[in-house]
Write a protein that binds this DNA or RNA. Structure first.
Length: 221
DNA sequence: GTCCAGGGCCTAC
DNA sequence: GTAGGCCATGGA
């Protein structure tokens, strides 16, 4: 089987097992961007608490965050770990948005995708995964998001290498999948669901839905 | 009590 | 260019 067939087949297996994930779990583009920053290295449960707090205090839009200060935001996002830094990161993003796009997210997403990605990466606190999450889930741009689960799972499958950098992982997926925003959206979401429930740092458990897939295709996990 | 979650920055070699 | 420390909550 080619990598194209393997990646497609894995997605079909996950979709059939878990159902469509309907990502990103948020109501607005602003919330997606805020969530993408807050979820860095922390479970989504912790982020949800922070989002609820921000909404309660009318600080869950980028404009509201831009017009607040770090001392106001930090206590509301305590649950997301590194809350002082993340409060600063949120404001770094809004500072960028208001400086270059007059605070208009739609206008920001009209920028050519490679250019915008470079701009996002220049913001202190926005790395490659966060930038790509923003592009894909808030901006509906065709980029594949790579996270720790993706690296772990596909390296265990023998399809990728642990020492690859972010760009190498991303290239592997984007070269071997059709450029389909909806597919990129749900594929990453499926990987996160799989990772959360079946592929923690310890070896995969017996119930992993990919086990039978691996057996059929002579892959080890 | 220990481990680890949907990272990224900074510093030292 | 890269390994290692730092940030510093909450659930299992």
């Amino acid at each position: 089987m080619s990598n194209f067939q393997i990646l497609t087949s894995i997605y079909k297996t996950l979709l059939k097992t878990f159902g469509h994930q309907n990502w990103w779990p948020a109501e607005t583009a602003d919330e997606i961007i805020i969530g993408a920053i807050l979820t860095q290295n922390v479970s989504w449960n912790n982020v949800e608490k922070a989002i609820i707090n921000l909404k309660q205090y009318n600080l869950c839009t980028l404009e509201q965050i831009h017009h607040s200060n770090i001392d106001e935001i930090a206590p509301l996002i305590r649950s997301t770990l590194y809350f002082n830094r993340k409060a600063k990161k949120l404001q770094n993003f809004t500072e960028f948005l208001f400086t270059y796009y007059n605070g208009d997210v739609c206008k920001m997403f009209q920028t050519e995708i490679r250019t915008l990605r470079k701009q996002l990466l220049q913001i202190n606190g926005i790395g490659e995964e966060t930038a790509d999450s923003i592009l894909l889930y808030a901006g509906a741009k065709p980029v594949f998001v790579i996270d720790a689960y993706t690296k772990r799972i596909f390296t265990r499958l023998g399809l990728t290498r642990q020492n690859w950098n972010y760009a190498e992982y991303q290239k592997f997926f984007m070269k071997n999948l059709p450029e389909d925003i909806e597919l990129f959206n749900d594929y990453h979401a499926q990987i996160v669901y799989l990772g959360k429930h079946f592929c923690k740092r310890k070896p995969l458990c017996d119930e992993c839905p990919l086990n039978s897939f691996c057996e059929r295709n002579k892959l080890s996990i």
